[in-house]
């Protein structure tokens, strides 16, 4: 098990290298820097040039690249002048927003998707199956940002039940947090619900025809109990896989959802950084989020081992 963790973390190094090289390549290609942002829209070219020199942005890219990688090796991801924060600080400050958004979304998606998938499998090819799978497929096909706009319009403006945007720290007010996160998480959940329900159904169908389920049935267990206990247990690995992938996809989807709902998360941090050319945030932020992405996938793999001891042999 320890070996698996070490091997996987080592395997992440080239991935991180690719990501950092791509993001560095972009700094060379993409025109503009934060000096234009700081000076303001109607600043003269001379003003901007002066700020550029003040901030050391006029150094050659290779020098900056060497400095940056040197910093990363010492555990220093750099500093954002625009935010007046270190990159680590900036990302860690936004991470709870993005993580709580994706985790709540995946929880909602799993709580609905898994039972729906099991139900569909138990009534395979009858109307509950078709209804559940049809709904899952429709959810999968909706643009999440568009759904977010509709939710704001319906629950925020027309009904006035939920705030239209913003974020409240759960430590400050749990209900406030829940109200803020409900709509964005709901919009994000709908796109993840489909894959989870579909995978659950597929896996459950396969498990349901296996011998040990037939034994369980023979023991006289009712059909719902068979599904809730034995079929679900047998299908957990593929379901976990699809949830793990969903986590990665939700992190991407959160980029736009955070924008629509004015949530101060990592996605808005990074998009804002690109639009304002805040390179330390772009490079450091991407590196950190990629690492989180890798770590979550590793966590999912470790969960497999816990769920299915047989796989320990392979590992």
């Amino acid at each position: 098990m320890l070996r698996l963790i070490i091997v996987r973390l080592l395997a992440a190094v080239p991935v991180l290298l690719v990501v950092s090289l791509v993001s560095f390549g972009l700094t060379l290609l993409v025109p503009g820097d934060i000096a234009t942002e700081i000076a303001g829209p109607t600043a003269s070219t001379a003003d901007v040039e002066r700020i550029r020199v003040d901030l050391g942005l006029d150094k050659p890219p290779l020098v900056r690249m060497v400095q940056w990688y040197g910093g990363v090796l010492r555990g220093d991801l750099g500093r954002s002048v625009l935010l007046n924060q270190s990159v680590g600080e900036a990302v860690l400050q936004r991470l709870p927003v993005t993580l709580s958004l994706t985790l709540v979304a995946l929880t909602i998606a799993s709580l609905i998707g898994i039972p729906a998938g099991l139900l569909a499998a138990s009534k395979a090819r009858r109307w509950p199956d078709q209804a559940a799978m049809g709904a899952a497929l429709i959810g999968l096909s909706l643009p999440d940002f568009w759904l977010g706009l509709l939710l704001i319009w319906l629950f925020g403006v027309k009904l006035g039940w939920l705030p239209t945007g913003g974020f409240v720290d759960p430590m400050t007010s749990f209900t406030g947090w829940l109200r803020c996160i409900a709509m964005p998480a709901g919009a994000l959940a709908l796109t993840q619900l489909g894959p989870i329900a579909r995978m659950t159904r597929a896996a459950a169908l396969e498990v349901a025809s296996s011998d040990h389920i037939r034994t369980a049935r023979a023991k006289g267990l009712t059909e719902p109990r068979v599904y809730a206990r034995h079929v679900l247990a047998g299908s957990l690995v593929p379901i976990l896989t699809v949830i793990g992938i969903g986590f990665g996809l939700s992190l991407g989807g959160a980029l736009v959802i955070e924008q629509v709902f004015s949530l101060p998360g990592v996605g808005r941090l990074v998009i804002g950084a690109v639009l304002r050319r805040d390179w330390p945030i772009i490079q450091g932020g991407l590196l950190l989020t990629t690492f989180i992405f890798v770590a979550v996938n590793l966590l999912v793999d470790l969960l497999y081992l816990w769920v299915d001891p047989r796989m320990r042999e392979d590992a």
Partner: peptide, 18 residues
């Protein structure tokens, strides 16, 4: 002073009193 990039969300927020 809240930073809200979406014009629609700002208008909606004013309408709901947030």
């Amino acid at each position: 002073v809240r930073i809200m990039p979406e014009g629609g969300a700002r208008t909606a927020g004013l309408q709901t009193g947030e």
